[in-house]
C-alpha cells in the first residue's frame, strides 16, 4: 500500500526551530501527515504527546518501525529531525525508502501511532558573531540540514545552501530553504554541475564575497573532503553530520564508531552520542 504521490510544495514551509534541550524519552507519536515528496523521498509529520522534549537541528530520533506483512525490522532506525515545531508539538522527518525499516515506515497512515526514542545525539553549533554560513548537502544529507536554515536565520546568520542531487527533480527542500531565508544554489549530476571542481569554484566565490565564514556538510564523503580542504585553506569553522549503523543509539554498544584524527592519532568516536555532528576537520572522510 503506497501513499499518494503529491507535489513537493504540499510540504509546508519550514517553521522556525526553537531548540530546547531535552533528555531522550520513548514516546508514542501520532502520524499527522505522510506524503511522497518525489520518486525517492517521503515526508512524515508527527504529533508529539504533550510535554515531549524537542530536538535541536542535527539531533536524531531512534524509530521503532512497525512490523508485519513480511517486514520485520529488529533494530530501531536512526533518523535526523527535518522539521522541529515545538510551538505546535510537531516533528517532521524527510526520508528515503532504502530497506526493511524504511519500507515498513512508508506504510504508516495518518492516525497511526509511531514509537520514537529521542531526541538523541549532539546537534549543530553556530559560529560566533552572526557570521555567514554555507550548507553543503547531498541526498539524505539535505534532510539533516533542513532545520539548520531557520535556526541560523533566527540567530542572525546569512545562509547559503548548496544542494546536490543526481537530477533536478530530486533536489529537495529548495522552496522550504528559500522560504526560511536561505540563498539556494542547486547542482546536479544530470546538468554536470555537481562535480567537485565546480562546487569548489562556488565555495571559493562565496568565501571571496565574505559569504562563507562557516561550512556545514552532510551526505557525501566527496563533498566532505572538499569542504575540509576549503575550510582548512581559509581557516573556516566547520561541522559535518555523519551516519553509521546503530543499535543502542545512546553510546553503550560501540557499534556506531567512525575514525577521526585527534592529536595526530586515529581514534574511534561514536556517531550516536559523540555526534552525529562533528568538527569538520577531525573526520576521516
Amino acid at each position: 500500500m503506497m501513499m499518494p504521490m503529491l507535489d513537493h510544495d504540499v510540504v509546508p514551509p519550514a517553521a522556525p526551530a526553537h531548540p530546547a534541550p531535552g533528555r531522550p524519552v520513548e514516546l508514542e507519536a501520532v502520524v499527522r501527515e505522510h506524503v511522497a515528496v518525489n520518486d525517492e523521498y517521503r515526508y512524515l509529520s508527527l504529533d508529539l504527546p504533550e510535554g515531549a522534549p524537542h530536538a535541536k537541528p542535527g539531533q536524531f530520533y531512534h524509530l521503532l518501525c512497525p512490523t508485519g506483512d513480511g517486514l520485520e525490522p529488529f533494530f530501531r532506525r536512526p533518523m535526523s529531525v527535518y522539521r522541529v515545531e515545538p510551538e505546535k508539538n510537531r516533528l517532521g522527518f524527510l526520508y528515503k525508502v532504502t530497506g526493511t525499516g524504511t519500507a515498513a515506515m512508508a506504510r504508516l497512515w495518518p492516525g497511526d501511532t509511531f514509537n520514537l526514542f529521542g531526541p538523541l545525539g549532539i546537534g549543530f553549533t553556530l559560529p560566533a558573531d552572526r557570521a555567514p554560513i554555507v550548507l553543503l548537502g547531498r541526498g539524505v544529507g539535505l534532510a539533516t540540514m533542513g532545520p539548520l536554515v531557520p535556526f541560523a536565520r533566527e540567530n542572525g546568520h546569512r545562509v547559503t545552501a548548496i544542494l546536490s542531487a543526481r537530477a533536478p527533480d530530486l533536489v529537495m527542500s529548495v522552496d522550504e530553504m528559500r522560504a526560511a531565508g536561505a540563498d539556494v544554489i542547486t547542482v546536479t549530476d544530470a546538468e554536470g554541475t555537481s562535480a567537485v571542481p565546480h562546487v569548489e569554484g562556488i565555495l571559493e566565490d562565496l568565501v571571496a564575497k565574505g559569504a562563507c565564514a562557516a561550512l556545514y556538510v552532510c551526505g557525501s564523503s566527496r563533498l566532505t573532503r572538499l569542504a575540509q580542504a576549503v575550510a582548512a585553506r581559509h581557516d573556516l569553522f566547520g561541522e559535518v553530520a555523519l551516519e553509521q549503523q546503530m543499535a543502542c543509539g545512546v553510546g553503550v554498544c560501540f557499534c556506531c564508531v567512525r575514525p577521526f584524527r585527534e592529536n595526530g592519532e586515529t581514534v574511534h568516536r561514536r556517531v550516536c552520542c559523540e555526534g552525529p555532528v562533528f568538527p569538520l576537520a577531525e573526520a576521516l572522510a
Binding site: 529488529f74 553509521q244 549503523q245 543499535a247 554498544c253 557499534c255
Partner: peptide, 13 residues
C-alpha cells in the same frame, strides 16, 4: 565496522 547486523528476532555483533 559493520559491527552489528540484524537477523530475524535478534542481532549479530
Amino acid at each position: 565496522t559493520p559491527r552489528v547486523s540484524e537477523v530475524p528476532n535478534g542481532m549479530l555483533n
